[in-house]
Design a protein around this nucleic acid. Structure first.
Length: 480
RNA sequence: CGGGGUGUGGCGAAGUUUGGUAUCGCGCUUGCUUCGGGAGCAAGAGGCCUCGGGUUCGAAUCCCGACACUCCGACCA
């Protein structure tokens, strides 16, 4: 893409300072605002509307696959959190504690949920007796708290919004299938609706969720070459069930522990959208989740008939199912062009007296700024077509960026050279499956193991680190 | 949690070295003229200078402390 003239002077250029560019977008596009508590942010209406769209699409998929929504309390008694050993050890360093009720100290302190496995287990213990009670396919849309040391809007905040699915099954096979199904729902959603290519894979032993038998994840590559985990799905085996004494009678009339899964995506997805698609003019939103899919900007709107025509177009598009906004505020057209570009609205529609005379309007797509003239008669079909074009174009750009920044390396030196010369990115390299080698690669190159991709390829026969026979190909990268 | 940087109307900054009426640009309000890539003129409104303690006749400015933001590492969705 040709280098575009920078129109919004207030946004720091990506190339100058990517981190500052990111926070500029978050503030200028009115997605978030800071509060007086470190790491806690206001998600403003425009940012929250993106989340609502993410929610409604995913929630639909959850319901289609038989899940029900519930709501668990936000407090977990310390004794409950302590029941699964690996789980506590994983989360203890970052939980917030409630120790007082009013002015009275509590008998037992309560943790503000960092995740709710323990609550679901404690509940299931009471309600599951028979194989007929299974499976339990639950989900909740809530916020959780993790006392992070370094915080950034959407990417790492102390309180964040997410959905956490928790399911309980009679057999391991069924639970494993559930884990895979949910990972695929996430991956398809990211690729189709967020126009963001992801790598599906399994986390290494050292990187899996606290208490899990296996953790699966989708990994995306941001514009600056850093990796971002966009969603996870865990298989717990019967470890939690045993720790929490959940038992059911199977068809053979024997007591048995059930098998469990959990899976989640968070508001971090909004950060992923920003860093995958944004440019120096601002946000660029995938049409499926854009709060405004098309904005109508009347030109010379004081002239007779312009506003009326614009309002008519708005009503027609609304009836056609497009999330459309008519901006009839008294800012100049040029100001509005920049404003909605910064806010990432996928399609802009310009209508002025000249257009009306010729029964046409101008459609401009955000991701490439291409202009096309369209007959007003065809608007209801032309706009949805453009939205699809934007999604496809955004996906192609993101995929191209990822391909350009994916390196295949046979030695640690090759990794170092690639990252240094071509910039941060994904590295495909072989691994012997020893934790020492995993650790050493991270220490020497800065790139940790992101996952073991399902789509394997053979870069070499030997481990990138120790030279012993390789067992798997790992996706490496510097992570957010 | 370790190391740097910053904190002044909504936003971005000057002023801090050398203590003395809080300044500029953008934005905001009102009016008129404009309108196909951030319009022009005119008149206005808006500030316990992050917070808490000191020093001083007097503190945005000096001293001590807290908090927040931010960048670089370690940990993490």
């Amino acid at each position: 893409m040709a280098k575009q003239k920078k129109m919004v002077e207030d946004i720091t250029s990506m190339e100058v300072d990517f981190a500052k560019w990111y926070t500029d977008i978050c503030k200028k596009a009115e997605l978030v605002s800071y509060t007086s508590v470190k790491g806690c942010m206001v998600i403003r209406p425009y940012g929250y509307a993106i989340w609502e769209n993410i929610q409604s699409i995913l929630d639909g998929h959850f319901k289609e696959t038989g899940h029900e929504n519930v709501n668990m309390p936000m407090f977990i008694p310390e004794s409950l959190l302590n029941k699964e050993k690996d789980h506590v050890e994983g989360f203890a360093p970052e939980v917030a504690w409630v120790t007082m009720g009013g002015s009275e100290p509590l008998e037992e302190r309560l943790c503000v949920r960092p995740t709710s496995e323990t609550l679901f287990c404690d509940h299931w213990k009471d309600i599951v007796q028979s194989y007929r009670d299974l499976p339990k396919l639950y989900n909740q849309w809530v916020s959780v708290v993790r006392w992070e040391k370094t915080t950034r809007p959407f990417l790492r905040s102390r309180e964040f919004l997410w959905q956490e699915g928790h399911t309980l099954h009679a057999t391991a096979e069924e639970a494993i299938a559930e884990t895979e199904q949910m990972l695929n729902i996430y991956a398809d959603f990211c690729e189709q609706d967020l126009a963001m290519p992801v790598v599906r894979g399994k986390k290494t032993e050292s990187d899996k969720f606290a208490g899990a038998e296996a953790t699966y994840a989708i990994e995306a590559l941001m514009h600056d070459g850093k990796a971002l985990q966009a969603g996870t799905s865990h298989y717990f085996g019967d470890g939690f069930a045993k720790a929490f004494e959940i038992q059911f009678q199977n068809k053979e009339n024997k007591l048995q522990a059930p098998f469990e899964t959990s899976w989640g995506v968070t508001t971090r997805l909004i950060g992923a959208i920003i860093m995958t698609h944004g440019d120096d003019n601002g946000l660029c939103l995938p049409p499926a989740v854009a709060p405004i899919q098309a904005v109508i900007i009347p030109v010379a709107m004081h002239k007779e008939g312009v506003l009326e025509k614009a309002a008519e177009l708005r009503d027609r598009l609304k009836a056609a199912g497009v999330r459309v906004k008519l901006d009839d505020s008294d800012q100049s057209p040029g100001w509005k062009f920049s404003e909605y570009e910064m806010k990432g609205v996928p399609v802009r529609i310009e209508v002025g007296p000249r257009d009306i005379e010729q029964n046409q309007c101008v459609l401009v797509t955000r991701h490439n700024r291409e202009k096309t003239f369209v007959s007003l008669d065809d608007l209801e079909t032309a706009v949805p077509e453009k939205l699809q074009e934007v999604r496809d174009g955004m996906y192609r750009n993101a995929l191209e960026n990822r391909e350009n920044k994916t390196y295949r390396c046979k030695t640690i030196d090759e990794i170092k050279t690639a990252l240094e010369e071509k910039g941060d990115g994904f590295v495909h390299a072989m691994w012997c499956e020893s934790e020492e080698c995993e650790e050493k690669v991270k220490e020497e190159t800065g790139a940790g193991s992101r996952c073991i991709p399902f789509a394997q390829e053979t870069v070499s026969d030997v481990c990138v680190c120790c030279g012993k026979p390789a067992r798997t190909m790992v996706l490496w990268g510097k992570a957010y």
